[in-house]
Computed example of a mutant assay.
Amino acid sequence: MKFKSVFDIIGPVMVGPSSSHTAGAARIGRAARNLFGKQPTYAEIIFYGSFAKTYQGHGTDVAVVGGILDFDTANENIRHAINIAKEKGIKVSFFEEDAAVDHPNTVRIKMGNGLESMELVGVSIGGGKVEITELNGFDLHLSGNHPSILIMHNDRFGAIASVTQILAKHEINIGRMEVSRKDIGKEALMVIELDQNIDPLIEQELADAKHILHVSKIVD
């Protein structure tokens, strides 16, 4: 196995005790916050596999909530995240499920604010690295380790081209891209990992493009 840097071996700078159960969990929570785009008023957190058995002892619960509060993995306030969430008026609930999952470190996050809601599934694959495997019923493979944009759009001719043309115009390079849809002609989802973050003006230009319904992003 080849490592890109020493951080692939020793893991990220983080509040302990575990890169998989703490840093990875925080990154999943923060990805959920980034994609929702605002502070929620509630968060339901469902743990599976190893997470379900050890989340309290390993601090996975506070880590996920810390991510939802937009704390990075080194933020010492992660230790107090549940109390901070309560102070901010966020109702947090934890559940354990014994359903079969593909990875033992799996968490499902349901969050919203009464007007909007979102459901996300993430797995912590080790060393603080994560994958987002489901978003609002769409299957995907998103690492969460690169700047990314997720674009909900109508499954129409030209929707993908309009997005790639905007990115090319602004010299934004695409590292990886996947598209999924629930049915022909219905809603579809573009997942695009980029080499750099995009600024709000480009994000708005994408949102205004033909057939685009919603744009979310995960920043590096």
Rank of each mutant, 00 (worst) to 15 (best):
E134Q: 14
M1N: 10
M14L: 11
L140T: 09
I10L: 10
N136S: 09
E203D: 04
V92C: 05
E131K: 13
H214P: 01
G29Q: 06
T73Y: 09
K38M: 08
T106I: 07
A168L: 07
I202D: 04
L206K: 05
I174G: 07
F138V: 01
D220V: 05
D195Q: 04
R79W: 10
S117G: 04
G66D: 01
D70A: 13
N173R: 08
G57W: 03
E96C: 05
K129V: 02
S117E: 15
L206F: 04
V179E: 05
A207W: 02
A63D: 11
M190W: 07
A207D: 10
S216F: 01
I198F: 07
E134K: 14
H21G: 11
S148G: 03
Q196Y: 00
P17Q: 02
S216A: 15
I218V: 15
E119W: 02
V121K: 13
I10Q: 07
E116I: 04
A100T: 12
E96K: 15
S124R: 10
K2W: 03
D102K: 13
D102M: 12
L206P: 01
R176Q: 14
A209V: 09
V215Y: 08
A168S: 15
S93K: 15
T133E: 03
H58Y: 03
D199P: 03
H211L: 04
A100N: 09
T54A: 09
S5H: 12
P12S: 06
M118F: 12
I109R: 06
A188R: 01
R181S: 14
E97C: 11
M118A: 04
N173T: 11
L206N: 03
A168I: 06
L140S: 02
L201T: 12
K169P: 00
P147S: 08
I198A: 08
E96V: 12
L213P: 02
K210V: 07
F95T: 10
I90G: 08
E76F: 10
I84F: 00
D61K: 02
I166C: 00
V179F: 11
T106V: 08
A100V: 12
E205L: 11
M177F: 14
P147Y: 00
D183Q: 12
H103F: 13
M190I: 02
K2A: 11
I90R: 02
H58A: 13
S124T: 01
I82G: 08
A43H: 04
D208Y: 00
L135K: 05
F94N: 02
A85H: 14
F47D: 02
A32I: 05
F51W: 06
T54K: 13
L201V: 12
G126K: 10
N75M: 07
T60N: 07
M14E: 03
M152S: 12
A85V: 10
V191E: 01
R108W: 01
R176A: 15
V6A: 10
D98V: 03
K129Q: 09
A25M: 14
K129S: 06
I174M: 09
L120R: 03
R156M: 13
G49P: 00
I82H: 09
K88V: 00
I9A: 04
I10G: 00
I10W: 09
L135M: 08
G122F: 05
I28S: 02
S20Y: 11
I172P: 11
A74I: 05
L120Y: 07
